[in-house]
Computed example of a mutant assay.
Amino acid sequence: MRSNDDLWVSGDVHVSPRYLAGLPGHADPSFAPVAHWPHHHLDVGPCQLVITSPDHRIRIGWFGDDYDTWLISAAEDSVSAPRWTARINQNTPPEIVEGLTRALAAEWDEDSDSFLTSRSVYWTDAVQPLLDAGWERKPLSRGLVEIVSPDGRAGASIDVVSAGSDAETVTLWAGPPGWGTRAEATFTARTPKHLIAATAAALADPTPVLRYKGVLDEDLARLARLTPSCRPGPPRRPAGSPARR
C-alpha cells in the first residue's frame, strides 16, 4: 500500500502557482487525510465513492469524471439533511481539496460539532488567508465582494446579500473561464468559515505541486511556471483519456 507521503511525489515538473496545476494523473491527495475513514464504493449512479466519518455525519462524495467531482457535506446526524455543502469541480487541484478534508479529519470527533457551526459571523474570516497573502479586495458590486490574486488568475467571490441556508455564498476559483480550465469550490451559507478558510489557505499556499507534464492542460501550462523535477515522466496520456487514478 502506498503511504500518504507517496501521494505527493509523483510527477516530472513542479507547477506554480498550484492553483493552475489541475488534476494529477496519479493518486489523489484529497483523500489522504481521511484514508482511515469508512469507504463505500458504489456500482450504480454517478457517485463512485463515498467516504464518511465513522458516525456518518461527514460525507465526501467522489463523482469521477463528472464536472462537480467532489461533493462534501456535514449533517447533525447520519440521517439528517446536510447543514452545509461544498461543491468542487474537476479542474480543482486535489491539493486544495485536501485543505478541507484535512481540516474535517482533524476536527471530527463523536462529541464534536465544530465542523457544523461557524466560529465567526464575519465573512472576511472565510477568506482571511487570501487577504493575509496580499490578495486584493475589490469594492462591493451587485452584492458580491471579490478577492483577487496578484496575478489575477485566482480569487474568491463572496455573496454578502443572499441569506438562505442553501444559498451558495462563497466561491473560490482559479484559472481562465472555460469547462476545462476554471477551478471552482462553492460553499453554501452555513459552511463554517474556518473550514472555508482552510480551503482558501491551501489555494494560496505558495508551495508548488508535482505533475506529469504530459497530462497538464495546455492552457493552464502556458500560464503556470513549470520547473523540471528529478523524476522522469510516464508516457504521454492518449488524447481524451481521463486523468484519474
Rank of each mutant, 00 (worst) to 15 (best):
R237W: 02
P235V: 12
G240W: 01
G61H: 03
V160K: 09
D151N: 13
L172P: 04
P234V: 09
R2G: 01
Q48S: 08
L203M: 14
T117S: 09
Q48W: 03
I147H: 06
A154R: 02
A74M: 04
D159P: 07
R225M: 06
V145W: 10
K193I: 00
Y212I: 00
S165V: 08
F187P: 07
P17I: 05
T85F: 03
L71N: 06
D12T: 15
S3C: 06
A75W: 11
V13T: 08
P82F: 13
L104P: 06
D111A: 14
D43N: 14
A189S: 14
A75I: 10
V170Q: 04
S30K: 00
A75F: 07
K213S: 08
A103K: 00
R2N: 05
P94K: 09
V215Q: 15
R57G: 08
L7R: 13
A174Q: 05
A185E: 02
A200K: 01
W173G: 09
P232Q: 04
P192G: 12
D12N: 15
F63M: 11
S112T: 03
A197S: 14
R190N: 13
W37S: 11
W84G: 02
G134E: 09
V148I: 15
G214Y: 10
L172A: 04
A154C: 07
R244I: 01
P93W: 14
L223V: 00
T52F: 05
G11I: 10
P242A: 09
V170M: 08
T101V: 05
V50R: 11
S80H: 11
P54A: 11
G22P: 12
R142K: 15
R2I: 09
S165K: 06
H56I: 00
L20I: 01
W37C: 11
G178M: 05
A198F: 01
A163G: 08
K193V: 12
A243V: 10
G25C: 14
L216Q: 12
L226C: 04
D6C: 05
G25P: 00
V215H: 13
C230T: 10
A126Y: 07
G233F: 05
S112Q: 06
D66T: 00
D5Q: 12
E184L: 10
D12C: 12
L42I: 01
C47N: 07
T92S: 09
Q48G: 14
I88M: 07
A156L: 11
K213T: 03
G99F: 03
P150C: 13
P93K: 13
P176W: 03
W62T: 05
W135D: 12
W62C: 13
A163M: 13
M1S: 14
V215E: 15
S112D: 12
G164C: 04
A167V: 07
C47M: 10
G175P: 15
L223M: 12
V145K: 13
P38S: 03
I147V: 15
G64K: 01
A27R: 07
D111C: 04
P232K: 10
N89R: 07
G233M: 05
L20G: 11
T85C: 06
L116S: 06
V145F: 14
S141M: 11
S120D: 14
